[in-house]
């Protein structure tokens, strides 16, 4: 039997991918050996991120690591990928929502409709602002050109933020050439890892989401062609990648807030930030009104948050 070769593209650039995906793929290739090899490509390397979904659907690439939002997948759940505003507080919320609250089933349905296999979802880091000028109140957000996720950007426009979408690899340069005033795309770990901390000066500790939600996907035909043990191996390696990010980000965020020297921390007071959280509830309703599936997902988010509040500490402190 000949060796199976997959081409996989991640939406992360090389610097970040070295942490969040390279180890898992290396592991897969070592174990699968002569039976199967995955060639990994970074952000925009083979196809631009905007074309990623089509490429996956058609089999230009066989597998993808991305969030639904960035790759603009033509499904009803797209807006919930990446940073759905205030959708989660901790990175453990994401796997719980998917595995225990029914999101897996909805995602599976939605992606099967468009010929793509949804393998599993995992959490990355929270979404914070890193900017050239300090943000100490909501008024400071006004008129800032910020690189952020599509849905988060849509939400933030009501506070005067001007969302800008550029290829991931160009962000550092775009901050320096003045195309951007800042970034709301990651936590502080990534700001340091990918070099954004070198071009910005301030880090806002308030976040608009506690964890990025993204997934592994595969072209449906390619997936079905795999023997069962390789499917299992692929799932295991995806889980390994999810697990790695859980501790890498959680520890990294705290460490760099305490010991990092490149970014000065600023905070918007809780009372003022509460208006953003309230606005998010309105935004959720807007989204839910768009379709039946979106309503189902929003309801799950609501149920989950209500449960967490009832559970009390350490799940929720307010």
């Amino acid at each position: 039997q000949s060796k199976i070769t997959w081409r996989m593209q991640t939406y992360a650039g090389a610097a970040l991918a070295a942490e969040v995906i390279d180890p898992a793929i290396k592991m897969f290739n070592t174990i699968a050996g002569d039976r199967m090899q995955i060639e990994l490509f970074y952000a925009d390397q083979l196809v631009p991120t905007g074309e990623l979904f089509q490429a996956l659907q058609r089999g230009t690439i066989d597998a993808v690591q991305s969030d639904d939002d960035s790759m603009a997948s033509p499904t009803e759940v797209t807006v919930f990928g990446g940073y759905f505003p205030f959708g989660s507080r901790y990175s453990l919320d994401v796997p719980v929502l998917f595995n225990q609250y029914g999101l897996n089933e909805i995602w599976d349905e939605e992606y099967s409709k468009v010929g793509v296999k949804h393998i599993s979802a995992g959490a990355w880091d929270p979404c914070h602002f890193a900017t050239k000028d300090p943000i100490r109140s909501l008024a400071d957000l006004n008129g800032k050109r910020i690189f952020t996720f599509p849905t988060a950007g849509r939400f933030l426009t009501q506070f005067g933020v001007v969302p800008v979408n550029l290829p991931w690899e160009d962000i550092e340069v775009a901050v320096q050439t003045g195309e951007l005033d800042g970034i709301a795309w990651s936590g502080i770990t990534e700001d340091y890892t990918v070099g954004w901390a070198d071009v910005t000066n301030y880090f806002l500790t308030n976040n608009i989401s506690g964890a990025w939600a993204g997934s592994f996907f595969a072209n449906m035909d390619r997936w079905n062609e795999l023997p069962e043990d390789l499917q299992t191996l692929f799932r295991v390696c995806c889980d390994q990648s999810h697990y790695y990010r859980q501790w890498w980000y959680w520890g990294g965020e705290a460490n760099l807030r305490v010991n990092g020297t490149k970014l000065e921390l600023t905070t918007i007071p809780d009372e003022e930030w509460a208006t953003v959280e309230t606005a998010a509830q309105v935004f959720w309703e807007e989204i839910a009104a768009e379709s039946e599936t979106k309503r189902r997902v929003v309801d799950i988010f609501k149920k989950y948050n209500a449960d967490m509040v009832k559970a009390g500490r350490p799940y929720r402190y307010t």
């Binding site: 925009d44 083979l46 196809v47 631009p48 905007g50 074309e51 089509q54 490429a55 058609r58 230009t60 550029l166 290829p167 160009d170 775009a174 195309e179």
Partner: peptide
């Protein structure tokens, strides 16, 4: 697809 997706990549190279 490779030929054409270069056009989309190029569009984004501001």
């Amino acid at each position: 697809d490779i030929g054409f997706s270069a056009a989309m990549k190029l569009m984004k190279w501001y």
